[in-house]
Design a protein around this nucleic acid. Structure first.
Lengths: 329, 329
DNA sequence: TTCTTGTAGATTATCGATAAATATTGTATT
DNA sequence: AATACAATATTTATCGATAATCTACAAGAA
């Protein structure tokens, strides 16, 4: 007769320690019991190598130490480093992460939120573009980069300030006329404030600008078209460019190279994100760096601090400029 | 009296459908019951929007639909795309992923394996460098990139073949004398076969080579030293370079640029990994591409196919060469 | 017609931890 | 010395799903 599993239970610990089941439960949960009892129980726990059964605990108490993290994917460096950081922060607080990738699909986003709610996780951290995401109010949810209304706390970079900073830096680097490259977004989300900040700054400091809106998932040709629209007499009619994501910087550089234009000599470029390529390698472009670790920490703290009622509805964290070779300095 | 939670249970479904609890369980688990009963239960499930309680199921059956994934981090593109792909594959098979990041720390690796075992996940997929990882044989474990012995299936790229292919391609591109840049690895793991394949190929095809072993987490200075060792009369004494990871390619390129050397004119470089920078952007270097999706799929299949006894102990998946600008073609 | 057998579905003990209810012990008060 | 009352430990019902056991009823054999 093979024993099915040799994992000791609370009952085993109680027997070993010569105390009652309830006493063990108290010790495990940090509820004060008599000194001698506590010691005996702790000794028994160590001796048997007891560890609590998550499923029993989840079933009975409704509390698990799981947090669901819902993101479009992990191949975009921004998402990857965000999830990486969230995982670390959760581990420090003795929680663990259940990850769901949505590929930006609103149906999947909704599906996973519902799934997470059914699985009774302790909280959900999600970055969703679903316009009408349906959220029960039984499980706390914190949103990243997307404001869903006052009831759901949202954590994001200071995107507006970042856009402003980009314009300021281009001006400081001597640019006379700049352009902005951005993606058409179907939905308003915090990162779209980058353009507002950039435009406001341009107007405030008297820097003339153009902007180009690329279609979502912009094909190569659109980058070419953009550049040719601004290409006259062998050179570009702008000397500074703000791309709302680093990804755009990389894409446009390929085209610039083909046209024989060099960066930063012919045009200075600032991106947005600042996620290091292999974790800690040097930046591949000058950029506005998002405080990924701070965003992750804030999101985790908001999720774990139970009184969501007095949580801020929007938390904007400061960004900074970092030189990465695509500007003069 | 407010009801604490409005999640319906199997009992609620049974009452609604006018059948017994056990019958509902059978329907939910696909065990055949009378046609009329099945229909009534299914109708009740839909009406009440019933979903099974994972914790109750986990407690009773010992089966959960969770797979633990243990990786060093998510900021390295290879790990990130691997985890991304594993998550997708699991989702297709109605499983979900619990992610743990270890930062290469053997203690954390061990800790998370144990934690996962205690949480009674259905399986563990792990990429660990811990030499003496202690694994219970109660829960199936699949290793990626590291061979732990015949009892634990290991999935990896054909690293040896990849190294061989790199040498072959450098030769095809006209290289006369090549060098290899690799990291000193404390532990034997599958990727270290890249160098063996490369060296074997060089010898087989009569291509002369040098190799440089960098210390782990190589500082900038080591790259400089390496290049100066091979720099005579204004040029390098090799015309082809194989870096065992793409990350090394990026690091060495910075130094090459500072020395006024250009790629691929002065030296052609081939890396290893081939993870696209933003998921699907173009490659940043010529490289041996690892079949990340295939690795992920294989690992998931091995984990979910219960009869691990007849699983292969090592599964090597084919790699391919991809041009990325750092070679002639 | 009676008895067996088979084939459903219905009951119920169980998984391991929690917390409310209960029992026990010791201290204080009269 | 007797009673009341804390304070602390033990019992036990419970969470929701599973599966072994039980029950009922129908078809077939004698």
């Amino acid at each position: 007769m093979a024993k099915k599993s040799n994992n000791p239970t609370m009952n085993d610990v109680a027997r070993e320690a010569g105390v009652a089941l309830g006493t063990v439960s108290k010790v495990v949960n940090g509820i004060p019991v008599g000194e001698d009892y506590r010691v005996r129980v702790e000794k028994a726990i160590k001796k048997l190598n007891y560890h609590i059964n998550n499923y029993a605990q989840g079933l009975k108490s409704g509390k698990t130490r799981a947090i669901a993290v819902i993101m479009p994917n992990l191949v975009s460096p921004y998402f990857a480093s965000l999830v990486n950081s969230i995982g670390k922060t959760l581990a420090l607080k003795k929680h663990y992460m259940v990850f769901f990738g949505t590929d930006y699909d609103p149906d999947q986003e909704q599906e996973y939120v519902r799934l997470a709610e059914q699985q009774k996780v302790d909280g959900i951290i999600c970055l969703s573009y679903n316009p009408k995401l349906n959220v029960s109010d039984e499980i706390p949810l914190v949103s990243i980069d997307r404001y869903f209304g006052a009831k759901i706390p949202c954590v994001a970079s200071d995107n507006y300030g970042g856009g402003w900073l980009a314009a300021k830096k281009l001006r400081e680097n001597g640019c006379k006329h700049v352009a902005m490259l951005r993606i058409a977004s179907k939905l308003p989300h915090e990162p779209s404030k980058r353009r507002d900040g950039f435009i406001a700054a341009c107007e405030a400091i008297g820097l003339s600008y153009d902007q180009k809106i690329l279609s979502d998932g912009a094909p190569y040709q659109e980058f070419v078209d953009f550049l040719y629209e601004h290409f006259h007499d062998g050179k570009l009619d702008f000397d500074g460019l703000f791309c709302v994501t680093d990804s755009l910087v990389h894409q446009i550089r390929g085209t610039l190279k083909e046209m024989g234009l060099s960066v930063p000599e012919d045009v200075q470029i600032i991106g947005f994100d600042g996620c290091r390529n292999f974790g800690d390698l040097e930046l591949t472009c000058s950029t506005i760096v998002q405080p990924v670790d701070a965003i992750a920490e804030s999101a985790v703290n908001l999720i774990l601090n139970t009184d969501q009622s007095k949580a801020p509805s929007l938390l904007c964290l400061p960004v900074e400029y970092a030189f990465g070779g695509t500007t003069r300095k």
